[in-house]
Design a protein around this nucleic acid. Structure first.
Lengths: 139, 139
DNA sequence: CAGGATCCAAAGAGATACTG
DNA sequence: CAGTATCTCTTTGGATCCTG
């Protein structure tokens, strides 16, 4: 974050450049897969919730409204597998497990802000476009 | 892009701010929905393909490898409905329909680059994390 | 040419009961 | 407490056939 990453943001200027890189096999994991990670219904909320320090499973379950045990577990596992989350088991009784976002995840969080700001800037436009489309499509 | 948008990029600095906005009902369309738009298997490729000027249905079909007619049509309709694409019908025989990205979509395209760059910077890290996870999980 | 309609398979996600 | 296992429903996407 903060300073020293100007060079890094200069890596690519167009998505075509990115696609060329992908096709040339220089990218171990294609951006499409990255998008899949955060596209799930719960991943972003988990990254937000774990970005301020260690948090326990049950706390997450309460914090992220509407999530089922199954999906919380699955999403946590996926994020952990990709190195976006650390999982620390304290061998106590009862068990205590804590999750925390890694620096890599915090950077992703920042990148997400770009998209979020886009959506905030244009959500009214999108809403209008939809209304117009829906108005002229049935007829 | 380029100049004059400093104020606009200052709108939000954290996802918590964004979530607060969403909950306060000030955002017609929540960022989650925005993500859903571009999370589909084909939306991004379509935005890329339509970002350089009008392009016809069949050209898209050839350009975007592996897409089925059905999915191409569905994705195009969704993008059009949200105002990210224009659809122009030329009443000729045989019919000719052209699609083109709107300015709003071009900005989204820019925002996507942030994510793409993140993925390029970290894809090796993710690959390593995965290998390690897979190595220690079975055992 | 540019789709619409229909059918089918796979993945995503919710509910619930059980366990170390 | 922090999961796993199972069952089911929904969504997403592919294949195919039909039409203005």
């Amino acid at each position: 974050m903060s300073q020293g990453n100007t060079a890094v943001t200069e890596q690519l200027r167009t998505l075509e450049d990115a696609q060329a890189m992908i096709e040339s096999g220089q990218c171990p994991i294609p951006p499409r897969e990255i998008l899949d990670k955060i596209a799930g219904k719960w991943a972003i909320q988990i990254i937000v919730a774990t970005s301020r320090g260690p948090i326990r499973f049950t706390e997450l379950e309460r914090l992220i409204q509407g999530v089922s045990r199954r999906m919380l577990t699955l999403t946590l596992r996926n994020l952990e597998r990709d190195g976006l989350l650390t999982r620390t088991v304290h061998p106590t009784v009862p068990p205590k497990v804590e999750y925390e976002a890694t620096p890599m995840a915090l950077e992703l969080y920042e990148a997400m802000l770009t998209l979020t700001n886009w959506s905030l800037r244009h959500s009214s436009c999108v809403a209008v476009a939809r209304a117009e489309y829906d108005a002229r499509t049935p007829g």
